[in-house]
């Protein structure tokens, strides 16, 4: 009997709570800033959100990891106010935002380098040219380029095992555009993962492996990986904070972005958050999570875009690559 009663109570409670929940809610008392997008930008935004909420207790900031592409879908639907992006907004996404009437401010916030890595036990690879990388990664290489001696005649006869970013990742878009020449054009027969630690483990254990991962992961796993210098036409350059900043680590260094919904920027807490992100305190956080901050000038330009509500992108819808910082900042945003 008792069980019957409690059963009825449970049914009643479920129905009641369901009915109440379906009722439209008045706006939440506390302001919420919803952020989503790139997993590469996540550590920075998370650190900024954490510090921001310490001083702004009445603001609720949420950060998700849907990938740059997945995040833009939500952003252009108006579900999020701020978008983390590891590449500029693409043509199709601009179109999607335009259709939904979403305008946005584009803010470069830090630099990241896509790093080509091999196992520390690999003794023969020190430097690769962009042409060699293309030979390895282009779609036509699928099933054909499977041995190191096909990459360069001097390399040993050893199986080539490849590790790289999964297709939802901005790192994937950027690497393919920089190396192959077209975003998302890649061979498919490699170990792909959105989880960069999987790639780190794979490359670390296999002396014949080659992979590409964001720089922050290399810094955290320095003992397990050997970074490969890249020859983009001006000699071999190792990735480092200096070579990224002075633009010599090309074409694999890339800017990271925030996109802020222009309408949401009218909300004081969103504006405060963005201004905090671009402040010197934000710079310290970027360094703390092992990314390379942009030159000071970049943040001044960003703050001006926020102040003057300058909407649009400076990249015309392409995942533009091989661009020195100075040039990145020269791009006047257009819609």
């Amino acid at each position: 009997m008792r069980l019957t009663t409690s059963l009825f109570a449970a049914v009643a409670a479920a129905t009641l709570s369901g009915a109440l929940a379906l009722r439209p809610h008045p706006a939440a008392a506390q302001a919420t800033i919803a952020i989503d997008g790139s997993s590469t930008v996540f550590p920075i935004t998370e650190a900024v959100a954490e510090e921001f909420q310490r001083t702004n207790r009445n603001v609720r900031v949420t950060v998700g990891i849907s990938g740059t592409g997945g995040g833009f879908k939500k952003f252009c639907r108006g579900e999020t106010q701020i978008q983390d992006a590891s590449r500029p907004i693409l043509q199709a996404e601009m179109e999607e935002c335009r259709r939904a009437g979403i305008r946005y401010v584009e803010l470069p916030i830090a630099f990241d380098a896509v790093t080509v890595v091999v196992s520390p036990r690999n003794r023969f690879v020190e430097c690769l040219t962009v042409a060699e990388l293309r030979r390895i990664w282009e779609p036509a290489a699928q099933g054909r380029i499977t041995n190191w001696n096909q990459v360069r005649p001097g390399f040993p006869d050893a199986r080539l095992s490849l590790y790289g970013a999964g297709a939802d990742s901005g790192t994937f878009d950027y690497f393919t555009e920089a190396v192959v020449g077209r975003a998302k054009a890649s061979r498919g027969d490699y170990t792909a993962s959105e989880d960069d630690n999987v790639l780190v483990q794979g490359v670390a254990r296999d002396p014949n492996a080659l992979g590409y991962i964001p720089f922050a992961y290399v810094a955290a796993h320095a003992r397990d990986l050997k970074t490969v210098a890249i020859d983009g036409g001006r000699g071999c350059v190792q990735p480092s904070a200096e070579t990224v900043l002075n633009g010599t680590y090309a074409p694999l260094s890339r800017p990271l972005f925030l996109y802020v919904n222009l309408q949401a920027l009218e909300r004081p807490e969103v504006r405060r958050f963005v201004e905090f992100y671009l402040s010197p305190a934000g710079r310290d956080l970027i360094r703390e999570v092992r990314y390379v901050p942009l030159p000071e000038q970049a943040y001044e330009i960003g703050l001006r875009r926020v102040r003057e509500r300058i909407a649009g992108t400076g990249y015309g819808g392409r995942a533009e690559v091989a661009m020195p910082i100075a040039e990145v900042l020269q791009h006047e945003p257009r819609e």
Binding site: Q30, E50, Q53, R60, T62, V63, I65, K74
Partner: peptide
């Protein structure tokens, strides 16, 4: 469905000090 990764606040408490005292927010 889009559960979040970083979230540094708790949901609205189910009990409120004012009428109707319970909240399903």
């Amino acid at each position: 469905i889009g559960a979040l990764t970083f979230i540094a606040f708790l949901p609205t408490p189910p009990i409120r000090p004012d009428f109707p005292f319970v909240s399903f927010q």
